[in-house]
Nucleic acid binder design. Sequence first.
DNA 1: CTCAGTGTTCAGTG
DNA 2: TCACTGAACACTGA
Length: 265
Amino acid sequence: MPELPEVEAARRTALRHLKGRRIVAVRCAPDPIVLSGVSPARIEKALRGAFIEDAGRFGKHLWFELDRKPWPVFHFGMTGEFHFLKAPAEHPRFLKLELVLDNDRRFAFTDARRFGRLRLAHDPRNEPPLRDLGHDPLFGLPEADDLARLLGSRKAPIKAVLLDQGTFAGVGNWIADEVLYQAAIRPKRKASNLSGVEVARLRTTLLRIIRRAVAVNADSDRFPASWLFHHRWGRVKNSRTAAGAAIVHDTVGGRTTAWVPSRQR
DNA sequence: CTCAGTGTTCAGTG
DNA sequence: TCACTGAACACTGA
C-alpha cells in the first residue's frame, strides 16, 4: 500500500469512513517496532474519546487530525494497510491498531512485515520525520529551472535521487521507474548530467503520473495500458512492454529497477 | 529451502 | 560536514 498515490487513496477512504466520528474504544498491539518508542497505553489514552476531524498526508506519511493533541501518524512501510470492518467477528491478521467508532464500525491498521510505523505528534508536518521531507509532487514541484539547479548538485543516479524522500517526498520504486520510462531517461544517468530539456521532461512526467494515479484512486487496473507498471513486476525474464519493447531488470540506487533500453537511451 | 520485495535507517567511505 | 553506497532490518509468499 506504500507510495504516494496509495497513501493518498488511503487518506481519502479513511476520511469517508472516519470524519466526524468519535473513537469509543482502542486496541493496540504491543509491537515495539511498529509502535516506535510509544507504549500502547499512551496511544490508547491519546485516541480514546477523541473526535476525528480531518486527515492529512505528506509524502508517504498520513495522520488523523483529532479534536485534541497528540495525533496519530502512520507510515505504511512495505505492507501497511487500513481496513474498515463491518462484522464484529472480523479480526484481520497482523493487527497493530484497532479503533471502535461511535457508529459501531471499526477501523484497523495492519502491517505484516513490520516496516510500518505508528507515532504520536503534536504538529506532524513540522517535526521529524515529516519536517525533513522534500517536495511532495501532489502539492507541486519547483519550476523547471529551479529543479535543474537542485539536480545539478546531485551526483547520484537519477533513480536514487527520485527515491530520496528529502528531495521528492512520496516517490517510491515503481513511480521512479515509471517516470524514467515515460521521460525516456536511463536510470543510471547522473542527476547532474541531465540536460535542461530532460529535467523539464522529468518534471512534467512526474507530475502527470502522480496526478493520474491519484485520480484513479491508486487502482492500478485503471492506470493507462501504456504504463510500464503493468509489466515491470517480478524480475521476469523476457518481459516486454505493451508495445513489445524488452524490459531489463537491474539494481540502481539499491533497488530493483525495471527499464527499457530501447526507449531510455 | 531460498530469495525477492510498493521502504527507511545507519555505518562506513571518500 | 556532506553525499553517497550498501547492508540491515522483519517477515511473507512464491
